[in-house]
Simulated scan of single mutants.
Amino acid sequence: MTAGLPPAVLAGYLAAIVLLMLTPGPDMMFVLANAARYGARAGAVAALGVAAGEAVHVAAVVAGLATVVAASPVLFTAIRWAGAAYLVVLGVRALRDAGRPNASADRADGRAGRAFLRGLLTNLLNPKMILFSVAFLPQFVRPGEGPVAAQLVLLGALFVAVQLTVDLALGLGAGRIAGRWGDSRWTRRVDRVCAVAFVALGIRLAAG
């Protein structure tokens, strides 16, 4: 056994998070938007930013901070509204840029550099990730089979690894397609779809 967790529990956990990671959400749409607009490098950097944000959520769960945030209506609502506003802003910017030609190489490099921070914020400002981390990870902990903190760290590390693998594959794949097709209608359509998705997700998040 690893960190006190039976192989059957780990197998069930991995199957669950793989299915979850394949479900579209703000993080996936952000990675896709960056890759389609600025290339594979920007998509990969965005994926790293998202993974870093999830690592912070996992650390908060281990430290007990996530439970405090989830139990505070005022703090949780503030994060929810900040996350909703941020998604809407991302959507409006993506919609504004959808009709423009792709950026030059220098500008694209700059966008790639900022993609990490934006990916980090996209994940951190999603209050549903806080609730998810608090509610989901402990379900697979077996207190009688080892230190709880060690089990949470292992579960969190596996979650981040799977998320990073899926998002990297998406970012690199979409970026290569966008680079091959250049300023095609496909790229502009992806921009618009991501823009609408960001705004819709922001509105949905604000509505609770």
Rank of each mutant, 00 (worst) to 15 (best):
A150H: 12
F132I: 10
A112I: 07
R80W: 06
G119A: 04
V196L: 15
M28Q: 10
G179M: 08
I130Y: 02
A71S: 15
L154R: 13
W81N: 04
A150N: 08
V69I: 14
V45D: 00
W186M: 15
G146M: 06
R93Q: 03
P127R: 08
A78G: 11
G175K: 07
A157M: 04
R180G: 14
V92A: 10
A15C: 05
V9K: 10
M29Y: 15
A195F: 09
G146L: 02
Y38G: 09
V61W: 01
S72G: 04
G110E: 11
L65E: 06
L172H: 05
M1N: 06
D27A: 12
T23D: 02
R185K: 06
L154V: 03
A169N: 06
A36I: 06
L117D: 03
A11Y: 10
V141Q: 09
L170K: 08
G12F: 04
G171C: 14
F132Y: 14
V56R: 07
V162P: 06
L125T: 03
G83S: 01
P73D: 07
P24R: 15
G173R: 03
L65T: 07
A207C: 05
A60Y: 06
N126V: 09
L95A: 13
T23N: 03
S133A: 15
V141E: 05
L121D: 02
A33P: 01
A66K: 13
A36M: 08
W81S: 14
L158R: 11
R41S: 01
M29R: 13
G43P: 11
R93M: 07
L121W: 02
I17G: 05
V193C: 04
M28D: 02
A33R: 15
P6F: 00
A66H: 06
A78H: 09
A115G: 09
D97C: 05
G208N: 00
A157Y: 02
G43F: 02
L152A: 03
I203F: 13
G12D: 12
L14M: 15
L19T: 07
G173P: 09
A51C: 02
A94I: 14
A35T: 02
A112H: 00
D27W: 03
L170F: 13
A105Y: 07
T67P: 00
G83I: 01
A157S: 13
G99H: 13
V89D: 09
T2G: 08
P127W: 03
P24E: 01
T77E: 15
P127A: 11
V162S: 05
L170M: 14
G110P: 00
R100W: 13
A157V: 10
L170G: 09
T77H: 14
V69H: 12
V162W: 05
V193P: 00
L125P: 00
A206H: 11
P7D: 11
A52S: 13
L95E: 01
A60Q: 11
G179H: 11
E54L: 15
L120V: 05
A174F: 12
R100N: 05
